[in-house]
Amino acid sequence: MAFLGTLCLILVLTTLAGNFANRLGVPAVIGELLIGIIIGPALLNWVQLNSLVSLFADIGVVILMFLGGLESNLQLLMKYLKPAIVVATSGVIFPIVMMGLASWWWGFTPLEALFIGVIFSATSVSISVAVLKEYHALSTREGATILGAAVADDIMGVILLSLMISLLASQGIQAAGSQPALGLVLLEQVAFFGGTYIVVKWIAPYLMHLSERLVMASSVTIMSMVICLSMAWLADIVGLSGAIGAFFAGIAVAHTPYRAVLADHVEPLGNAIFIPVFFVSVGLNMTLDHLADNLGIIVGLTVLACLAKLLGCGLGARLSGFDLKSSTVIGTGMIARGEMGLITAQIGHQAGLLGGADYSAMILVIVLATIIAPLVLKQALKAMPQTAAE
């Protein structure tokens, strides 16, 4: 029952922080992220990232991405699929090269430097979705490209992580946990996306229509949550982020007559409990261990982490025909790091590749980049004329 007190504290503080952030003209998510740093191990140490907080955070990101899918336009996503792949590819190459070379220059071994580059090649678009929703930019060509690139980025992240684990094994370094063969993982992911098409086309409309006929309160909303959670679970099984499965569940349900009703029902549920916990959990990952010893590396890598995605994804967008302002929006929308980076860093730490001080520094850089991302995305959105989705 102690967790109920923790949950009350998180909800009260994030509500106040979001209010102050909005009054100051910055995205509400910034205030919520900062609350996680203030009440977490970095400062007051009132709340730790335990299993219950992690569970609520996982549900929060799933609901957030489900809402993002509800507000997305599938035709627009398909239209900008090719630019999204270009953006994702350049957005993976730039961090590996820039972060890898910088880490090598700072004294890391070539293998460690390559591993650090892979850590920061992954994007977590969940934070950007919150900002895009807040500024009504999800159903634009820039929003569609960011979301499409996030899906491609997640697949590339799984491939890179598998390759790095194989490379570690070849060097006599055993990563924690057994990993399936890369070919099997890719086959499972192809099957997942094939199944997703079937869900969008036939299964989701049938289940939503069936739920309306059930004599049960909120049956339509419950069915949508069943679809959301099951697709997030399946995505996780095949090695993708559960957020990706939830996003496609949102798209599937959005192509039924119940889209508006579900947005009205699910969004209050997410924003009232789970989504604030997710934002706070990002800040709870942050500690100040070995800060003084690694301050130069932390500042330098944080700047490079932001620039690598901005330049890489921005260049990909420019090569795909976007103008400078739209390319900047897309680049800033891909800056945030998240679960894939944290998982990769943890694997490196457990394998002995990243020592305690270096591991703490990498986690700190991931959190700082995630906090910076909504600020720069907001500025990029303000500089771009608001246009309807094409």
Rank of each mutant, 00 (worst) to 15 (best):
A351P: 14
L368E: 02
G333T: 05
G341N: 03
L364F: 06
M362V: 05
T332W: 15
G338H: 12
I347L: 13
V367Y: 05
L353A: 06
K309Y: 13
G348D: 01
I335W: 07
L354W: 06
G316I: 07
L353F: 03
I372G: 02
L353Y: 04
I371P: 01
A369L: 07
L315D: 14
Y359G: 09
M334G: 02
G312Y: 06
K325W: 01
L324I: 12
I330C: 09
F322P: 08
I343A: 01
I343G: 03
R337H: 08
L353Q: 01
A308F: 09
D323G: 13
K309A: 08
I366Y: 07
A317S: 14
G333L: 13
A345K: 13
L311A: 14
A357N: 02
C313D: 04
F322T: 04
L364K: 04
G333N: 07
L311P: 09
I366P: 00
T328R: 15
H349K: 10
G314Q: 12
T328V: 14
I363G: 01
A361R: 01
V329Q: 13
G338E: 10
R337G: 00
G314S: 12
I371G: 00
I330H: 11
A351K: 03
L353P: 07
L315H: 08
S326N: 14
I347V: 13
E339T: 12
S326L: 14
M362T: 03
I372W: 04
T332C: 09
G341T: 01
T332Y: 15
Q346A: 11
G348T: 02
A369R: 06
I347K: 00
G312D: 09
A308N: 07
G355H: 02
T328C: 12
I366E: 01
M334I: 13
K309Q: 10
L364V: 03
L354A: 05
